[in-house]
Each structure stands twice: as C-alpha cells, then as structure tokens.
Design a protein around this nucleic acid. Structure first.
Lengths: 202, 202
DNA sequence: AGTGAATGTAGTCGCTGCCAACAATGTGTG
DNA sequence: CACACATTGTTGGCAGCGACTACATTCACT
C-alpha cells in the first residue's frame, strides 16, 4: 500500500498536518476537516495522525493555538510603536485584526469556539497560547498612553481588555459579510473614535 | 421496530428537534449534535429529520436562526426604555447579552459560526433572522440619545454597530472563562464607559 | 370515498474517528 | 558495534454518522 520511494518516516508530520489543515480552513469550515483526509493528502496512513494528537479535539486545539500565535505575531508586526499617535496605533491594530479575521475566518471561528466549549486548559506550566496573548497588543498601547496622560488612569489590564473587546467586535462583524466591504474600515474608524473619545459629545 | 402506542406522526417534529438540540447545546458543543441521536431521543426513526431539514447544515442554520430570535427578544425585554439614563440603558443591553452568551455559549458559537462560514442567505424576501436583528437594540438607543443630544451626530446605523461591536466583544470574552467571573461585569462597565465617554481624559 | 401530499420507517452506502496488533525506523547504552 | 527500546507509521476492524432510496402510514381536500 505504501509508495516505495517515500521514506517510512515523514519527518515532521505534526507540523505538516497543522499546516495543511490551516490551508484547507481557508476554503472550508472546521467541521469539514477530516484527519483521514489530511493523512491521505499527505501520503500517510489514516492512523498516523493519532501518533501526534490523541484525538480530533486535541488536533483542533493545536490548530487554534497556532492560530493565536499567528494572530499575535500579526498584531505585533502591525504596531507602529509608541511614537505613532494613539488613534493611528489603535487603528493599525484593528486593521491587522480585521485583515486576519477576513482572510482566516474559519480559523478564527475555531479559535473562538475552542474557548467557548471548555478546551481543558489542563493547568501546569507553559500552557498553550490563547486569547490572553493577543490582548498583549492593546495592553502595550494602553500602558504607553497612560504614561503620557492620553488615557484615563485605572487598571490598565481592564482598559486594555475593553479596547480589545471593541476591536474583536468589529472583526467579528466584518466576517459576517453583512457589511458592504469598504464600510468595514469606516465602522472600525467609528468604533475606535467611540472607544477613544466616546459617543457623547465633548 | 415501532412502539405501538405511539402515534405514527409526531405532531411537530421540526420544533421538537430544534428544542431538543438547543437543550443539548447547553451541555455540549455543536459538533456533538447528531441528527440520528436527536431522532432516537424523540422516539422517531433516524431518517425522519430529513423530512424537515434537507441536511445537517440546514438544521444548524435553523437552530442558529432560532437563537438570534431568542437573543433579540432577550435584548428587547431587557431594554429599560428611553427614559432610563443612556449609560444604564446600554449597560442593561450589555448585561442581557452577557447573560445569553454565558448561559448559551454553544448556541452563540453556532450563531456566530453560521455567519462566518457562508450560510447561503438565498436572497428573497423575509430571510432568516440573523445578527442584523440583534443590532436593532443598540440602534434604538442611539437614535433616542441622538435626539436628546446625548450622542454625537453621525450615521446612527454605524454608531449603533460600533456600540454593538463593543458589547459583542465583551460577551465573547466573557464566554472564554478567562475572566474570573465577577470581573465580567466590571469589564462590561469599563467598556461601556469607554464607548460613551472615551478612554481619553475629558 | 378516494386520491395525492406530508410525514415517518427500514435498509444501505461511504466516510469518519477511534482502537488494537504489527512493522519499520531512530536512538542511546552495553 | 550490537542490541534493546522508544518513536513513528501501517493495516484491519468497529460503531456511529449523514445522505440516499424504496416503501408505509396518515392527513387534507375534493
């Protein structure tokens, strides 16, 4: 059943499975992912994936974790740094998040669902990366801005989470497709304006 | 194979399936839902559900639609009306949303995922209820507040969506369980404060 | 009374995730 | 260098699932 010119061991099947799955998520929902199909695509037997992931849930969790890592990296790369204006800095984060959400909507769905449905965090040191890491972007921004007096005092973590909530909401809405495209950026701008300056007149 | 004292026709199998499924979503993820299992639980053959839903996706879509209806109703019921202060009105909406999100997290996951993964909206009149309906809550609030000059002028729909994005973000984060419970309400308050008064000092 | 639409049943197919038994390869120790 | 053992992959089998087909029962309307 095996191709003779293929080495018996794949090399890094675990990474290959995650990569291929992330690829397929760009054209399908998480429910359509099949371990057997992935194994077939990679030229490996249907039971091979079980050597790297105890079950399907664990595989999806690992996939979600890699998604959080990529989102975190994307946000960090988009951050123009403390010298940019507060508004443009927050906007940059928001645009990076929206870009991720629209280009990897199924992956984001998986990442969010993982949190919602339990996903035994299993204690111990060095847990998997998750939402908390992504909030580090807004956290940096809030801390810098508070230091300059550009943001009201108060627990920076809570304020950063509030900021994150706003950006997350825009990203989530942008995925729905209900917004006519170019309006997404307008919505992002208005949301950031509301978060920074408030909906009430000044 | 049939129980003789059971009537051949169920009466309203479609509604029963949706109800039972919503029940099971309170203790499991959407992926765990099985049409065959639901049919078994309702004492009906495994193919009966297909008379009411062409396939599993359609069933989940109907389930999500019923979720949007319930969320919309919950928000409308929680609205204290235009005479309450703006802040307390928005807070009431937010608390209702968070309550729904935490008590029906799997259903909300399904509702959000449905939007993300396409869910052929199939045009035509009177489409299924969805996110747009839920935004009607914030829309009313923004309109009333603008009329009183308590909210800056501007396209009310966009402002309402910005407000909704903030509330949605808090609800999404509250589901993750990363927040220590009582902190959820604190986060909601801070987020509403940010949305209304802004993070910048006044 | 009779006919066709709705609704439910039984059986089958291919696919899936999971499990157990076995095979090939890598690694470290005598 | 040989040999034991952990790691990684293979084959085969099982039960559950969604989808399809053919058939049965009941309902609604004429």
């Amino acid at each position: 059943m095996r191709h003779p010119d293929q080495p018996y061991h794949h090399g890094d099947l675990r990474a290959a499975l995650l990569e291929r799955a992330a690829e397929q998520l760009r054209t399908g929902s998480p429910a359509d992912l099949s371990l057997r199909r992935l194994a077939r695509d990679l030229g490996v037997s249907h039971a091979a994936p079980s050597r790297h992931f105890p079950d399907r849930r664990a595989f999806l969790a690992a996939l979600a974790a890699s998604g959080w890592q990529r989102l975190d990296a994307g946000l960090a790369a988009a951050d123009p740094g403390p010298d940019a204006g507060l508004r443009s800095r927050v906007l940059a984060l928001g645009r990076a998040y929206v870009r991720f959400a629209t280009s990897e909507s199924a992956l984001l769905e998986l990442m969010s669902a993982g949190k919602a449905t339990g996903e035994a965090t299993g204690g111990g040191t060095g847990g998997a990366p998750h939402a908390a890491d992504a909030v580090s972007g807004p956290a940096r921004v809030v801390l810098d801005a508070q230091r300059r007096g550009e943001v009201v005092p108060g627990d920076p973590e809570t304020l950063a989470t509030a900021l994150w909530a706003g950006l997350h909401g825009v990203a989530a809405l942008s995925v729905s497709g209900a917004l006519p495209g170019a309006d997404v950026d307008r919505l992002l701008e208005r949301t950031v304006d509301a978060l920074l300056d408030g909906l009430r007149p000044r």
